[in-house]
Amino acid sequence: MTAGPKAEQVADWAHTPERSNMFLLRVMVWISLRLGRRAGRVVLHGIAAYFLLFAPASRRASEHYLRRVFDRAPGWRDQYRHFFTFAATIHDRIYLVNRRFDLFEFEVHGEDALRRLLAGGKGLFLMGAHLGSFEVIRAIGWKYADLRVAMVMHQGNAQKIIATLAAINPQATQDIIGMGHVDSMLRVRERLDEGSVVGMLADRTPGGEALHPVRVLGGDTNLPIGPFRMAALLQRPVVFMTGLYLGGNRYSVHFEPLADFSAVARDQRDAAVEAAVVRYAALLDQYCRRAPYNWFNFFDFWPSANVEGKPAP
């Protein structure tokens, strides 16, 4: 039974959201770079309407999520706004990758804590989620010339994203480390040793990974422990990050210290990793409530056939 929900979750996200994500991105790159952000945004309404009408699986996932976060049945306007927010953040990635930071207003919270942890010079992990825009880290990184960011992602996604980024801005691709190579982790370690920030989205799994049961928005689900195991092994601090889209050209960027594995001994590692996953889930919960339309996991994040009462293996 434990393999069931795991496999289903994988199939769901691996097939729908990233594909539409990539398609959207290609269309939007074309329009946006030729006609500008305002013109591009007109198209976003078409995209939101398209999702609402012709993407029943995404619509069901959106409805399920909104029902949880609002504690009421969402109307079509809520769902429209949800899809619009998703499309808007993808659209803005084009400008962020092209370093058009002048187009946006960023309100940054928790920057001091981030700076303090970075002062050690040994790098840190930045754990994001499919919540808001992680791409805004480019704007933060640019603001401080000394902050270097490398993104870790699953190999399949990495290849697609590298291809798309290359189309937008060829210089943007060198920051991506694809997982799945024997030496992926050694590359991560080298980046950290240079003092870089290593970013990852820790709310999805490519499958076959160990999961830990958590509660998010009052529902049971499982999150991968891999990202936190990596941080624990490499004994680095972990900071949660999200760039919430507030409408117009405004983003609020949040950094929250999540865990610090710098001094965690080996026999305490597993417990520390589990505590970090639970804290990560609590942060997802907190920021979903704060900016509800920013949740971009358009698949069943709360598998109905849950492993109720059964701890993860």
Binding site: M179, V182, M185, L186, V188, R189, G208, G226, M230, L233
Partner: peptide, 18 residues
Amino acid sequence: LYGEGLGLDSIDVLEVAL
């Protein structure tokens, strides 16, 4: 060791490497 066979993932490999 990796993937099929012993079934280690890349984080296991990192641990082994360390």
